[in-house]
Design a protein around this nucleic acid. Structure first.
Lengths: 234, 234
DNA sequence: TCCTTTTTATATCAGATGATAGGAATTGCG
DNA sequence: CGCAATTCCTATCATCTGATATAAAAAGGA
């Protein structure tokens, strides 16, 4: 029978076996391997630059397996975005929840400032935590920079919530409203700065600073610079 | 006869009519039109995403004209980078020279700070000055973010000089040495911030702030935020 | 064990893309 | 004009890319 679909009705809108449990367990492992290979490849080079054949080879499967599990290249790309959103969400859930709670509890300026430090610090630590996370950061930064098939996912579920939280904290710190452009601008400035180092302009960061990698020591320096920026916020 | 080359010796290393004066004037105009179309296209979408056919059509020439004038797609891309470097260099030459002169003349902290403001301000103004400059900014940011065939050109002739100057000014402002990582980090942070708005994350900037464009008013706000960052240094 | 469903592979397609062959048209120059 | 160097186009190639048709192999359920 033809792949996926089921229902046997009209057009096969969902041609892929996109992650649902079926009773057959073997496929889940394969699906995971493909997703992992795709995350690495897309993170390194971006949507256009990566070919489906490269991913298939990395994952040790044949080309049609990608279509079987993810429908098409874009579906695979979106699945990567979802996976990344999930992992980053998990990694920052605690500090983010604490910050939100503090805001709700009408915390003071200095408390808000401290939460902002924690939030950005935990994000920075995660991004520098492993080679994998590094690739994810590049995936996210690249997609936000040059919107592609996963822009909406990343914007709606990563950037916007993060920017909202940051703006909220800054607003509290400055006694202004989170909707003011000046506040939002500062928030974006902070987040952009963070992303710029670990992901996009890493290539340049290393060259300019003469570093060979961004390890603990280097990360500490970046966080220090970030904190200086946070302190500078009125 | 076959295109370009001359010399008639062994391998045709330089197959293209790459910009030298020949006595025949007609070609220069065509060459310029191709370069203009390429600048627009590459700036909008990046090296990979743009096809040679698109550029040829935009320029109103046939496909082989690109190869005739620039050898291959990469040659055209590099030519774009050179053109951009030249224009940005012109636009910032005055303020940059003044800043260098001030540094050489052993200027004081506040003078250095003022020069830093001027340098970044003029760059920001240029980048937001026209739709063309906006595309160039995207060209530069994209190439620095995801190194391609023109990375070396842009790094060596734009980023590094700019970063050196910025670091020098910051060093003077803080009484430290321009070679210190902390100083260089601050410099990169400033430049990255500037690029982030006008080029890369512009898409997001507009959405997050609810702007429809980055006009004078918006630019003023960004510069204000930048100046706040400059003031916060040491 | 037999049968259905799922999983995976081989071979192939259709379109796009960068590049070239080869020659026609144009331009400068004596 | 006459001639050589240049500019530029039509047609075509070779390759790569995402996707599909088709069917064999494997896995579960009775």
């Amino acid at each position: 029978m033809v792949q996926g679909g089921g229902k046997a009705a009209g057009r096969a809108e969902k041609p892929a076996r996109s992650g649902v449990q079926t009773g057959y367990r073997k496929g889940d492992e394969t699906r995971g391997r493909i997703l992992g290979a795709a995350l690495e490849a897309f993170g390194d080079a971006g949507f256009r630059a990566v070919t489906t054949r490269q991913i298939a080879q990395r994952a040790g499967v044949s080309l049609p397996a990608l279509q079987y599990y993810f429908g098409d290249k874009e579906g695979l790309y979106r699945a990567c975005a979802e996976a990344i959103v999930e992992r980053i969400g998990q990694a920052t859930a605690d500090v983010a929840a604490a910050a939100v709670a503090a805001l709700r509890a009408n915390c003071g300026r200095e408390t808000a400032r401290e939460h902002l430090r924690l939030v950005l610090g935990s994000l920075a630590a995660f991004l520098a935590g492993s080679g994998q996370a590094e690739r994810w950061a590049q995936f996210v930064a690249g997609e936000l920079q040059d919107p592609g098939p996963a822009f909406e996912i990343l914007y709606a579920r990563l950037w916007r919530p993060g920017a909202e939280l940051t703006a909220g904290l800054i607003a509290r710190m400055t006694g202004r409203d989170a909707s003011e452009p000046a506040v939002r601008l500062k928030a974006q400035l902070l987040i952009s700065t963070l992303l710029a180092f670990q992901s996009g302009r890493k290539q340049i960061t290393l060259r300019t600073l003469g570093w060979s990698k961004i390890g603990e020591e280097e990360l500490a320096m970046i966080i220090a610079a970030l904190n200086a920026q946070i302190d500078a916020i009125a």
